[in-house]
Simulated scan of single mutants.
Amino acid sequence: MDMSSDFDRILFFEHARQTCESTYSLSPLDADNLTRWGGVLLELSQFQNGADSKKMVQDAMDKLEEAISINPQKHDAFWCLGNAYTSNAFLIPDLEDAKEYFDKAAHAFEQAFEMDPTNDLYKKSVEVAAKAPELHIEIHKRDLAQQAMAASSSAAASIKQQVANKFKRNELKYDILGWVILAVGIVAWVGLAKSNLPPPPPPR
């Protein structure tokens, strides 16, 4: 996706987020609005990095859980919550820790499908949820490999730079040391030469 369409998406979802926030201040028990808000936060989380993305996904989970507490039959909120749990699980590098959220996601997708068994998207989500832990392993293995490659290349660049800097410092040090040794050598040679001069001829 090109930069302009990403930028347009961010603007669109940011506007939607602000609208949901305004609606919530007027009507905090609107489960539809909370579901929309959770979905919008999930979309926006894709454009964040690290901790910001995780925080936005957590906010999305909170909004969707709130929507379900208001309307426990809201299948689209369960489906969105399943996506939020899945997103959160993928942000956790350790599979054992992530598994808790994959399990919650699978349960949320199943509940959405039970409430609306004709919805193909819910059915597909249940199927995909079972494969999520396997995908998690692949993604984080690839990430670790990329991080290792990046680390090794940056380490190599860093070592190269350090060696270059050291070499420059050493060059200067050896230049200065060379001149000092030469100067000391000349002084010593002159001193030695003076001490080894033949005695002056006796006066006549």
Rank of each mutant, 00 (worst) to 15 (best):
I159C: 03
K99A: 09
D59A: 01
A51Q: 14
A148C: 09
N165F: 13
A89C: 11
E110M: 03
M56E: 01
K141I: 12
C80V: 15
I92S: 13
A145K: 11
S69G: 07
Q73P: 07
Y174Q: 00
F102S: 02
N49S: 12
Q147C: 11
A129V: 06
F109P: 11
F78K: 08
F90S: 03
C80L: 14
E171W: 09
N83D: 12
E127C: 08
K173I: 01
K63D: 10
D59I: 00
A156S: 06
D175H: 07
I137Q: 10
F47M: 12
L177K: 13
S152I: 02
I159W: 06
H136D: 07
D116L: 12
S153W: 02
E96Y: 10
I70E: 00
L135C: 12
S69K: 13
I176G: 10
E66Q: 11
Q161I: 01
K74E: 01
K160L: 04
A60L: 03
S153M: 05
D94L: 12
Q48P: 01
L64R: 07
Y174I: 00
S154H: 04
D116T: 12
E110G: 03
L42E: 15
Q162V: 01
H140E: 15
I159V: 06
A77M: 03
N49W: 12
D76Y: 06
K124D: 14
H136W: 04
D76V: 05
A98Q: 07
Y174A: 00
H75T: 06
F113E: 01
A106D: 02
L81G: 10
D120C: 08
Y101V: 02
S69H: 12
I137H: 11
P117S: 11
S154A: 05
S53A: 07
Q161V: 00
S53N: 04
Q146T: 10
L44H: 06
F113D: 01
L44C: 06
Q162T: 03
E96P: 13
A51W: 14
F90Y: 03
Q73S: 11
A151D: 05
K104E: 03
L42D: 11
A157Q: 11
K104Q: 04
E138P: 01
E100Y: 15
K173Y: 02
E66I: 08
K104Y: 05
I92D: 07
L64F: 09
M56P: 00
L44M: 08
F90H: 01
Q146E: 15
E171V: 08
K166P: 12
N165P: 07
D175N: 08
L41R: 01
F102Q: 01
I139G: 02
Y85M: 05
L81K: 14
E65D: 02
